[in-house]
């Protein structure tokens, strides 16, 4: 299924790490969920989400991101996706700032552009708009709990925050999103 360049073959087999076949099987099993999570981390920008997921798979397969068995594979993988997306966004911002300093045209990622955003249908557009109005923490915790059916504790692990903070973000996010969804439905 996967190509095997020489670089990807050197996976270290310590007592916590999984063998390559196991990793591949897990990545394939979680692929759809991983894509959904990457979409959420990239403000539902499809091309950016694909790029992030590509980088994550490469990191996992060449061993630069190594699963050590401290949490479930999914929790760990989602953490890697989140960090990679954050890093990607930061790199993009720095690159744009440098382009600005060098008097070059900045690269615009128009998140409102219909082909850049993964729209789906009208309803999913509404939901997406409501989600973008939430704070990133609130959006993340709600996505993990409702979309990926994780517990708040697992969500806290993925987001690298305390359980108490995750609960607070969850409660506030839930109230805000419910209000916004009701408002959006009223408008329709």
């Amino acid at each position: 299924m996967f190509p095997e360049p020489a670089r990807l073959r050197r996976l270290k087999l310590t007592k916590h790490t999984m063998v390559r076949d196991e990793i591949e099987a897990e990545l394939e099993r979680l692929h759809a969920d991983s894509f959904g999570w990457a979409l959420s981390c990239c403000a539902r920008n499809r091309s950016e989400a694909e790029e992030v997921l590509q980088m994550v798979y490469l990191k996992v397969l060449d061993g630069s991101a190594r699963f050590k068995g401290r949490a479930s594979f999914q929790t760990w993988l989602f953490g890697v996706i989140r960090r990679t997306a954050l890093h990607q966004r930061r790199t993009f911002a720095v690159r744009n700032r440098l382009r600005g300093l060098l008097l070059m045209q900045p690269i615009h990622v128009d998140e409102k552009r219909p082909d850049a955003l993964f729209d789906g249908d009208v309803r999913s557009q509404h939901i997406g708009q409501c989600l973008t109005r939430l704070s990133s923490r609130q959006r993340e915790v709600l996505q993990l709990v409702y979309y990926h059916e994780m517990t708040i504790e697992q969500a806290a692990n993925v987001m690298n925050i305390s359980l108490g903070s995750a609960r607070t973000h969850y409660a506030r996010g839930k109230a805000n999103l419910a209000y916004m969804l009701k408002e959006a439905e009223g408008e329709r």
């Binding site: 798979y57 490469l58 409702y146 979309y147 999103l177 419910a178 969804l181």
Partner: peptide, 30 residues
């Protein structure tokens, strides 16, 4: 809670229909 769950279920269903094949991401990665 129900409205939020319903919204996310819908989003999930829509996203599932557009998941890129994993082999494409892996081949393009390096």
């Amino acid at each position: 809670q129900d409205s939020i769950r319903d919204a996310f279920q819908h989003l999930r269903k829509v996203d599932r229909n557009a998941v890129p094949p994993i082999s494409r991401l892996i081949i393009n990665a390096e």
